[in-house]
Every structure is written in structure tokens, then in C-alpha cells.
């Protein structure tokens, strides 16, 4: 593990990450650290490479150059399922739930890496397989209570409204008991009340469960309120980093968002 600094222990480090799609550079040498227990917000205009960065971390994209380490171990070349086992969970910008399954089944799938039942023991459903189901059901029920989705636990996910689906997806990621949670626009398309709910859940997850959180979000109000630290991406480069206050007043950031010569506006 990298050395501790005044901000705490570096849990994940991204070093000089480059990602090319054909001739387009989605990421052009991004380096950043994520400290244990913090809430880090990644902001930036559309197409800045925020989601590409998360996809590299969770193993969906192979970076062209650079490396990613998690708790001192290099994860750059690992496949997504191996990365999940290390304790990195995520949600997606466009909800990627198992639509044909119930909320309960979705959350139980989040427990996949913690369960042992194999093909044969599952098919026989005898003794240990059955005990394991119950044991993990209890854990899942706790998450259901936490996210206040008790009434919909038996509902098929595809039939749920958007806001609830987002919540279920958060629950599925939580069921992994991650050390670090990557949230890709967890509040996109929500009304103020729903945003407040999600913000509260994120803070609770961070404080009560001690999960490090990396979130991409466009709502500056939320970002300023809940994050400990903000990094700003623009055209695949990291252009600013610091506390929400520092970033808000950074001229480079204002320029990235509003274009050149519009100093009259602030974020």
C-alpha cells in the first residue's frame, strides 16, 4: 500500500491512464489517487472521459497505457469479475439491472461472490445450499431495509419506475460489500426529493459502512454538498483537483464548462 499522506491512505491509484478508441483519445494521461474512506466526485463536461475512467477501473475497458492499483495490487489487466472480487463495485449511468428478475434476485446476485453453492448442490437444494440461501437472504434484507425498498422486494425490476431502479442498482452494488463503490451518475434524471434520498444513502454508506465512494455527477449542488474532494476532467485530461470550494473557483474549470471568455459566470 502506498504511503499515508495528510489525506489518509491511498486506496486506489490511477497512473497516467491513456485510452484510445481508434484515433480518439478518451483518456489522455489521467493520474489520480483515491483515499480510503473519502467521497470523491469526478466532474467534467460531456465526453470528458469520466465514464471511460470508471470503465477502465472496473475492467470493462483495457487502457492503452498506464496502470491502476487497488490496495497496492495492480488491477489494470484483470477481468471485471476478478476486480469485483477484490471489493470494487459500481453502478451504471444507464441502469444495467437484470430486468427480468425480482428486486430480491437482483440483490441476491450481488451476493454472488460471497456465496459458495455450486451447480450440483444448488440443484439438490439440500442442507448447506439451503442454509446459505437463508444466510445471505438476511444480509440482503438488511440492505432492503436500509434503502427502504421493502414493498417492492418481489417486484420484477423491469416494471419499476426509474428512481426505484436506480435505488435497486445501488442496493445490488452494496450487496457485494465493496471496499470502494463507483457510482456513475446515481442521481441523473431524478427530482429533488429523490436526489436528496440518494445523497443521504451515499453519505450513510460512506459513514456507517466505511465504504470509499467515487461518484460521477452533474448536479453541482449535490457534488458541493456531499463530496470531500473533487477532480475535474476535460477532454481526457485532469484539469483540476481539490476541495469543492477550490474547484469551484478554479478558472480552468470555469473555462472548461462555460468556454473561453465567459468569466462573468461561476459554477
Amino acid at each position: 500500500m502506498d504511503g499515508a499522506s495528510e489525506r489518509g491512505i491511498v486506496q486506489m491509484a490511477v497512473e497516467n491512464l491513456v485510452l484510445h478508441f481508434g484515433g480518439v483519445a478518451a483518456l489522455a494521461g489521467v493520474s489520480l489517487e483515491v483515499y480510503q474512506g473519502e467521497i470523491l466526485a469526478i466532474i467534467g463536461p460531456n465526453g470528458a472521459g469520466k465514464t471511460s475512467l470508471l470503465n477502465c477501473v472496473s475492467g470493462l475497458y483495457r487502457p492503452t497505457e498506464g496502470r491502476i492499483t487497488f490496495e497496492g495490487e495492480e488491477i489494470t489487466r484483470l477481468s471485471p469479475h476478478q476486480i469485483a472480487r477484490l471489493g470494487i463495485a459500481r453502478t451504471f449511468q444507464n441502469i444495467e439491472l437484470f430486468r427480468g428478475m425480482t428486486v430480491l434476485q437482483n440483490l441476491m446476485l450481488g451476493r454472488h461472490i460471497h456465496m459458495r453453492t455450486g451447480l450440483l448442490s444448488g440443484g439438490l437444494f439440500w442442507g448447506r445450499a439451503q442454509r446459505e440461501e437463508v444466510e445471505h437472504r438476511r444480509i440482503v434484507e438488511e440492505i432492503i431495509d436500509f434503502l427502504e425498498i421493502e414493498p417492492i422486494r418481489k417486484k420484477v425490476v423491469g416494471s419499476l419506475p426509474y428512481g426505484l431502479q436506480k435505488r435497486v442498482e445501488l442496493g445490488r452494488a452494496l450487496a457485494l460489500e465493496p471496499k470502494i463503490l463507483l457510482l456513475d451518475e446515481p442521481m441523473a434524471g431524478m427530482n429533488v426529493e429523490e436526489k436528496e434520498d440518494i445523497a443521504r444513502f451515499i453519505l450513510d454508506i460512506n459513514e456507517e459502512r466505511g465504504v470509499t465512494i467515487v461518484l460521477i455527477e452533474h448536479d453541482m449542488g449535490v457534488v458541493m454538498d456531499i463530496s470531500d474532494r473533487v477532480v475535474v476532467l476535460d477532454f481526457g485530461r485532469l484539469i483540476a483537483e481539490g476541495s469543492p470550494e477550490e474547484v469551484r473557483n478554479n478558472p480552468l474549470v470555469i473555462q472548461a464548462y462555460l468556454g473561453q471568455g465567459s468569466g462573468a459566470y461561476t459554477l
Binding site: S79, F98, M101, H112, G122, F125
Partner: peptide, 26 residues
């Protein structure tokens, strides 16, 4: 039985959303 336990659920997860299935560790 298979489809009310771990392996069967993973099968259905692959049907519904293979990328998400991979990201949760399948």
C-alpha cells in the same frame, strides 16, 4: 432448484445483462 440458487441466478443474470453480470463478479 438450480434457478433458485446461486448458479442458476448467475445464468439468468447473463441473459438479462451480461456486462452487469461480469461487474458483480460472475
Amino acid at each position: 432448484n438450480l434457478f433458485r440458487t446461486r448458479v442458476g441466478r448467475a445464468f439468468v443474470a447473463i441473459r438479462d445483462q451480461d456486462i452487469a453480470a461480469e461487474v458483480i463478479g460472475i
